[in-house]
Simulated assay, not measured.
Amino acid sequence: MTALPDANGAGREGPGAREIAIEEYAARGAEPFAAREDEPTALLLDVRAPDEYAEGHIPGAVNVPLEEVAERAAELTARTGPVVYLVCRSGRRSLTAARLLAEHGADARSLRGGTLAWAEAGRPLATGREPEIGAEGRSPS
């Protein structure tokens, strides 16, 4: 049975979905789209509303609002490969999205603490509405 996050957004992992620390994500490399042998097509999805995303997001994150994740889960899982990283403001919505994608077979990893923790760790934020997922499921070049 999948446990729900508590009122503060502290995550409780469900089957196929897990939380990872900001440091663990950052250690894999600064470029979310960089190919690695163990994560050849890993992608970072920011599941906040477009206005929230535009105000500040992790560089390279692709915006797919939580409300679209369920209807696009099969598409996103097929296009992103086995590993999908998810982020939101605090980690609550991204853990929900991770569970949805895990139900479609993805190795879904929610960044604990979200963009708040990212910024508090002194890591950079980008602004604006780019990038978006293109027809090929990747960020446009």
Rank of each mutant, 00 (worst) to 15 (best):
E52Y: 10
R112Y: 13
G128I: 06
G113V: 03
E136V: 06
A27V: 09
A42W: 00
I133T: 10
A70Y: 02
E37M: 13
P40L: 07
E37N: 12
R92W: 06
V47L: 07
G122I: 08
D38R: 11
E23W: 11
A49H: 07
D107L: 07
E136S: 13
F33T: 14
E68T: 00
S90L: 10
G56F: 04
P82K: 15
E39T: 12
L86P: 00
R92E: 14
L100E: 05
A49T: 10
E136N: 14
P82A: 14
E55H: 12
S90W: 06
L76V: 00
A70H: 04
D46T: 02
R79E: 13
M1K: 15
A42Y: 00
P15E: 14
G134F: 05
R92G: 11
A35F: 15
P140T: 02
A54H: 09
A30V: 09
T41D: 14
R112M: 12
A135S: 11
V62C: 06
R109T: 05
Y53I: 01
H57R: 07
F33S: 14
T127V: 12
G9I: 03
T96R: 11
S139P: 10
H104L: 09
T127P: 07
P131A: 06
A108Y: 01
V47M: 01
A102H: 05
H57F: 12
G122K: 09
E39K: 11
G60C: 06
V47Q: 01
A73L: 08
S139Y: 02
R99D: 12
R109V: 05
P140F: 01
L43K: 05
G11D: 12
R79K: 15
R112G: 08
R48P: 00
V83Y: 06
H104R: 10
A126H: 02
R92V: 10
R138F: 09
A108T: 03
G105S: 10
I133W: 06
G134K: 04
L125K: 10
G137R: 00
V47D: 00
E31I: 15
I133A: 10
G14F: 03
T80D: 07
L45W: 02
R129H: 13
D51I: 08
R138P: 05
C88P: 02
I133H: 10
V87K: 02
A98P: 02
A21L: 14
P59Y: 04
V87S: 07
P131L: 04
E13K: 09
L116D: 13
V62D: 00
P124M: 09
A117Y: 04
G137M: 00
C88M: 09
T2H: 14
A97Y: 00
G81D: 03
R112Q: 15
A26Q: 08
D46Q: 05
A121C: 06
M1W: 13
I133M: 12
P131G: 08
E132A: 13
D46P: 05
E75P: 08
D107C: 07
V69F: 01
C88R: 01
H104I: 03
P131R: 03
A21T: 11
A78I: 12
I20T: 08
F33K: 12
M1P: 11
T77C: 14
